[in-house]
Amino acid sequence: MITPRTEIIRGTVDMIPLIVAVIPWGILVGAYGIESGLTGIETQALSLTVFAGTSQLVAIGMLESGAGFASILITTLLITSRHLLYSMAMRNDIKDLPFRWRSSLGFLLTDELFVNAQREDLSFNRWYALGGGFSFYLAWNLATLCGIVAGAFIPDLSQMGLDFAVVATFIAIVVPMVKSSSVLACVLVSTVVSIYCTVQGYQMGLLISIAAGMTTGYYTYQLRRRK
């Protein structure tokens, strides 16, 4: 029988692989925050209220290199703008729910939750999404705490390559998505363009790459459908 309880549990269980994979990443954010001169409480507050790994990491890195308030905020806006796409894609599922649901699921809408809640084999269930999103939130914050504590004792913890956790997680998410030539084209173009933009030092690199990947995917799909 499907009840809120069973759906919360199912959402949590389905999130476990991504929870395990995000732990090193959370530890990195915690340790790096301390190293960059934030207090433990400020570092934890980032995870508690911002709850966005890439934005947090980049912001901490910018603080360390002495960037100003405005440039950090603009960079956050660029990095986080991908969530606009997620909320647009989830709009039909969530927009008619009460405000407390919209705001909670919106707050919890990470890359990971988007991927799990959007799986093709399941129809959207709010409790399932809540279970996955909230367990991921707890794990992210506990991992950050571990990083804050460990970072105080182990110098250079943030230099150990914990950011590979991001690569491993995202690859594990992307590979099963590549079920058609259009997704493959999207992935390849997005990767190549992102590397090019980074080497060129474009601030808008992430956005440009995402736009290039999505456009390529869409037109590849259209081309193949016409044949």
């Binding site: 894609a89 959007q118 991001v166 690569v167 992307v174 992935v187 990767t191 590397i195 995917g217 869409y218």
Partner: peptide
């Protein structure tokens, strides 16, 4: 178009981490 957002985003994050 939006269905390509997740693979595009994730690849764009991975690319520079691995190759730069």
């Amino acid at each position: 178009v939006l269905s390509y957002s997740a693979p595009a985003v994730l690849s764009a994050v991975i690319g520079p981490l691995v190759f730069t």
